[in-house]
Write a protein that binds this DNA or RNA. Structure first.
Lengths: 224, 224
DNA sequence: TAGCGTATCTAACGGCCATTCGAAATTGGC
DNA sequence: GCCAATTTCGAATGGCCGTTAGATACGCTA
């Protein structure tokens, strides 16, 4: 039984044909998850858009959870790559505000119009079984740390006030972006415009630049 | 059959005993929905924490969807009331920044520590059946318009720059807050502190108040 | 304490859905 | 065009879950 153990797994010696079908299934699943949630999408939903029979999916995947795992992981991997690429392909001398806008634009573009995987991740992660979440959280953590470094670099460069809690800033920024998956509909507002607005508000504030000094002493935190 | 039509409905002439059990069920449901999502919580989950048998629930509610509807509606009603109360009980002469902080604090408090109904709403709305969503959206719209008026008032009072798109600002703000339901865990950071940080960043910006004028001409929007 | 409305229990039904499995079909190498 | 491996089919299984309904218990009033 020790040699059997492996033979039951799907995704054996990845034959070229199979890989394409796999993609088709994952694409269908990502879209369905993103639209209807995890529990509400059935294996047959996925199979139908992938143009096959429900049972056939189990030749490529071990379980529905398995599919979810892969969709979620790809979702993070994609935003992460896109953001890293966008920021990385800027001249090293770029101002922090430019890097930020590049990162925000890339994140929003992936989430809102390019990747069903990323939007599935954002919409469905909370519904995932514990084991699936646990694994995906590793990728999420790495992505979050990337943003942390980006902001911390901006702070060291003097582009971000020293009394701003970077953790809160990061969560606020990512939260504002991710929540857009809930309400954004293409048409009214271009993603790049949205990104500019978000960066503008977060960096410069929505208020008039008047009272930076007249704030009361209590309640402001210098460090964590 | 026309007189039967009504007799099948639950919640008849609200006897005092029944009302309490109803609450117990709704409380259990709100908590369960908020923790596990809608599809993943079974009627028996709800029944168990409400200390009764699954079938008994149908004496008080017509269907699972019915429970969800009520939980979602109560969720919005509660934040709305809390925010309106917090802002309304401020002296009329208060600065906009104070009103904003009161509103943000109230919203976050409800969402993160006071009401399972509100957090259930935020976490589960997207998974709800179309009919349930449609009804709840009315309440959501009213709540959103309240924030819209608050911000627009702030802008007229000169506390918000005129070139800020209020719709984006509102969605950014609510998004940042609602997303906190995903990551906030009590202990590290008090809700009031979080609220202060959020208001600070949104109003004053995280950046140094340097380049308000040196921005390039393209990409800035004066109106919608 | 008898009796009536209220509330809960219990068991069952019916449907849906993830998953399995053996048979059929398809493919690629020779 | 044949064989073996790869892929898909299609029907069946088993379990879970929302919902129903009749029987049972509870609580109050007279």
């Amino acid at each position: 039984m020790s040699q059997q153990e492996v033979s039951t797994r799907s995704r054996r010696t990845s034959h070229p044909k199979s890989a394409i079908t796999r993609q088709r299934i994952l694409d269908a699943a990502a879209r369905a998850f993103s639209l209807k949630g995890y529990a509400a999408t059935t294996i047959n939903d996925i199979a139908m858009t992938a143009e096959m029979q429900g049972g056939s999916i189990y030749y490529h995947f071990e379980s529905k959870d398995d599919i979810l795992q892969e969709v979620l992981d790809v979702g993070i991997t994609r935003v992460f790559s896109a953001v890293r690429l966008a920021v990385g392909s800027l001249p090293a001398s770029s101002a922090f505000s430019e890097k930020l806008e590049a990162a925000v634009t890339a994140h929003l573009t992936m989430l809102l119009q390019q990747s069903d995987y990323t939007s599935a991740n954002i919409r469905v992660f909370e519904q995932a079984p514990a084991a699936v979440k646990r694994q995906n959280r590793k990728l999420r953590a790495a992505y979050g740390e990337y943003w942390g470094r980006l902001l911390s670099e901006g702070q060291r460069a003097g582009a971000i006030r020293r009394d701003v809690d970077l953790m809160v800033l990061r969560l606020l920024l990512l939260g504002a972006m991710n929540w857009a998956a809930t309400w954004y509909r293409p048409g009214d507002l271009a993603v790049s415009e949205l990104a500019q607005n978000v960066c503008d508000i977060v960096l410069n504030g929505a208020g008039l630049d008047s009272n930076h000094l007249e704030r009361s002493s209590k309640g402001r935190r210098a460090r964590s």
